[in-house]
């Protein structure tokens, strides 16, 4: 049976009650990191993201969410340290959505990107991506398509680099467009990356260490998992 990764796409906008409940789950370090963020919306999104991660991983390992702990390694890659031997996890947020990935033994990286207004995807891809990917972004039929192509490639690069625990900046030209199997240079390793269907113009990608295919099961909605975005299935399971 192939490996499986669970993805949750969660709204960062929650009621004040929910926000307070998430905040109560955070440890001292997470609360202090949230408090350092200057803008209320960014602060609240951080709180929701880390609180929801705790709820979902707690459910997976059958422990109260507030008892979990992570250690942040070099380049910010978090590893679950309590319980030991627990699942691999990854977290990402962009604009108003949060993406959470829970995998088995293989290191996982998830990334969500909302095409940012004001960003010039063609200029960015020309300057930082490999020639073939820059051409792909440039040849989008309209501004929305060009922004979408850039967001997709960016999410795939970030997902791979996060799974690898590497540095993003030297790997901006990492080719991720054609193949799902990506060879990272630093640290050296092979990863498999796949796009995750996401509503609202967002692009999500998830990568696992190693080449073997894996199943992705995606859920949409808050941790109560009821108000999924219109037009999306509650669960989208596909086998690769």
């Amino acid at each position: 049976m192939p490996d499986a990764v669970r993805i949750w796409i969660v709204s960062a906008r929650v009621s004040p009650d929910e926000l307070a409940r998430y905040r109560a789950l955070l440890d001292a370090d997470e609360r202090s990191r949230a408090a350092t963020l200057a803008q209320a919306a960014t602060r609240d999104r951080f709180t929701v993201a880390h609180g929801a991660l705790r709820v979902l991983v707690g459910r997976a390992v059958d422990l109260p969410p507030e008892r979990l702990s992570w250690r942040r390694g070099r380049h910010g890659k978090p590893t679950l340290t309590h319980p030991r031997g627990g699942p691999q996890t990854s977290l990402s947020y962009s604009d108003e959505l949060v993406a959470i990935a829970v995998a088995g033994d293989r290191a996982v990286g998830v990334d969500i990107q909302h095409p940012t207004p004001g960003l010039d995807p063609v200029a960015l891809a020309d300057r930082f991506f490999a020639a073939e990917e820059a051409r792909l972004v440039r040849s989008g039929p309209d501004a929305a398509a060009r922004a979408d192509r850039f967001a997709r490639l960016w999410a795939r690069k970030e997902a791979v680099v996060k799974a690898a625990g590497g540095r993003l900046w030297p790997q901006l030209a990492l080719p991720v467009h054609r193949d799902d199997v990506v060879r990272c240079g630093d640290p050296v390793g092979v990863h498999r990356v796949t796009d995750v269907a996401t509503p609202g113009g967002y692009r999500v990608a998830v990568a696992l260490a190693g080449e073997p295919p894996f199943d992705v099961a995606t859920s949409y909605g808050p941790t109560g998992w009821t108000d999924r975005p219109a037009g999306t299935p509650a669960e989208d399971r596909r086998t690769r």
Binding site: R33, T36, L37, A38, Q39, T42, F46, S94, Q113, T116, G118, L119, D120, A123, L124, R127, F128, W154, E158, L168, L172
Partner: peptide, 16 residues
Amino acid sequence: MDELGLSSSLALELLL
């Protein structure tokens, strides 16, 4: 990142 919440894609735009 810790205070402004600068994302990596905005950091890229900043450098450009």
